[in-house]
């Protein structure tokens, strides 16, 4: 009888170690809380809304008058993700939907709150949109879907284009 115990005890001990996982080593949740904007065609005569792919989208942030690196450069897109700045209460973006189109400027004002994502990922930021200002050179109209940017799965804003 004792031999059975002697075999079982180390086996279970080993299995027990394997069953555990070190939470500080894994960051499986998406760390990014980015603002997602979907592009749609302006409602037609029958009030139907259709997704649209804009052929050459260029997007970058403007930080204190300086252009930052491009997030997208002449890419065909139906939606874009905007990384709002976690170190300031507003972010300005430059959006050009076509290489020949007049660019639009998007200004976001928001409040931030820190948020613990997981032991492996550490802290992140939740954004709550306050106001949004946009020039309407190519954008026809804007709709808010969600003002709280707490993950990258939602569509937070929808831009309607005339063409």
């Amino acid at each position: 009888m004792k031999t059975i115990y002697q075999i079982l005890l180390p086996c279970l001990l080993l299995a027990g170690i394997v069953a555990c996982e070190n939470e500080t080593k894994i960051c499986d949740q998406t760390l990014r809380t980015e603002l997602r904007i979907a592009f749609k065609k302006k409602p037609d005569n029958f009030n139907r809304i259709r997704d649209t792919v804009l052929p050459k989208v260029t997007l970058f942030a403007i930080d204190q008058g300086k252009n930052r690196d491009s997030i997208f450069k002449k890419a065909p897109l139906s939606s874009v993700f905007l990384p709002l700045s976690p170190v300031a209460d507003s972010s300005i973006f430059f959006l050009q939907v076509d290489s020949t189109a007049v660019p639009d400027t998007l200004t976001f004002r928001y409040t931030r709150s820190k948020h613990f994502i997981s032991p492996g990922c550490g802290f992140g930021t939740y954004f709550f949109l306050d106001t949004m200002l946009a020039t309407k050179h190519r954008i026809d109209s804007i709709a808010f879907n969600s003002k709280s940017v707490i993950n990258s799965n939602d569509t937070h804003l929808t831009f309607f284009f005339a063409e």
């Binding site: 942030a61 930052r68 990384p83 700045s85 976690p86 170190v87 802290f123 930021t125």
Partner: peptide, 15 residues
């Protein structure tokens, strides 16, 4: 102490 970094915007937020 914690640090929130933004690879795109640069800079850290600490608290």
């Amino acid at each position: 102490s914690y640090k929130i970094t933004s690879p795109y915007w640069g800079g850290n937020l600490t608290g």
